[in-house]
Design a protein around this nucleic acid. Sequence first.
DNA 1: AAGTAGCTCAACCGCTGAGAA
DNA 2: TTTCTCAGCGGTTGAGCTACT
Length: 267
Amino acid sequence: MGRAPCCEKDGLRRGAWSPEEDQRLLEYISQNGHPNWRALPRHAGLLRCGKSCRLRWINYLRPDIKRGNFSADEEALIVRLHHELGNRWSAIAAQLPGRTDNEIKNVWHTHIKKRLEGDAAAGGRPKQKARKSKAAAAKEATAADSSEQQPFMTASPGLSSSVSSGVTTFSTATESTDAGTTSARLQLGATTKAADMELESFSSAEFPPIDDSFWSSPDVVDMGLGVMDQELGLAGPPSSSTRDEDMEFWLNMLMEAGDMRDLPSFL
DNA sequence: AAGTAGCTCAACCGCTGAGAA
DNA sequence: TTTCTCAGCGGTTGAGCTACT
């Protein structure tokens, strides 16, 4: 089967996008949408291939992209979803509103995976330098700005200690105070249709099929996230037994991170 | 202050599946 | 049914940045 080349290499720009290109793409899509990525750059006057435009839009320019570091509960959710779905980053991203598959993939490989491995190897706290790039700082600044614009984003000064007390791997010096901590939980109800389809179709010998109602059930929304509610005083009366079990679940998961294959028993 | 090593993340590459012809 | 085109996905890369020596 013949496959069209990604793009004609001749005359097309590659590499980092300039602000002008971003502006052009943004303006074009806001006016015309993106019915045809392949034709889009030509119509928009961009010397890029459609694929590049699509990636730039999805991973950076889309207005609903959430900036800033991943919160502890977002990371916890990623850990759980990765355990359930494997490297299906788009399916995982569908459960994290405002996050892209690329971003989640990067975070998994650069943060979460290392922490889990560190825990498994050292049986304790992973070593990670307290580093913060300019880009990350800028992102955080943007996140702080957007948190003012988006009421659902709640700063959580107490999060680091509270979460780390139960889930040691999710607390680092660089990521202790994130805006948007509760957004993932609050937006979980807004499961996208695509995600639903993904989850409907997901079924394997290793994992049982997941019912749609699973994702909207209070148990799931609370799983590993309810702790935050308590700390932040956001939730009603805690159901202590389930919350304790949740804590125990995450502890076990992270303690056993070296042997992730054994985890499906929690399902 | 300079050099080096390690980290982050935006972007690219190549493959797959779906839909149209 | 076969062929072709396209969008989307996951894996990988490398430039730029920061911490460390």
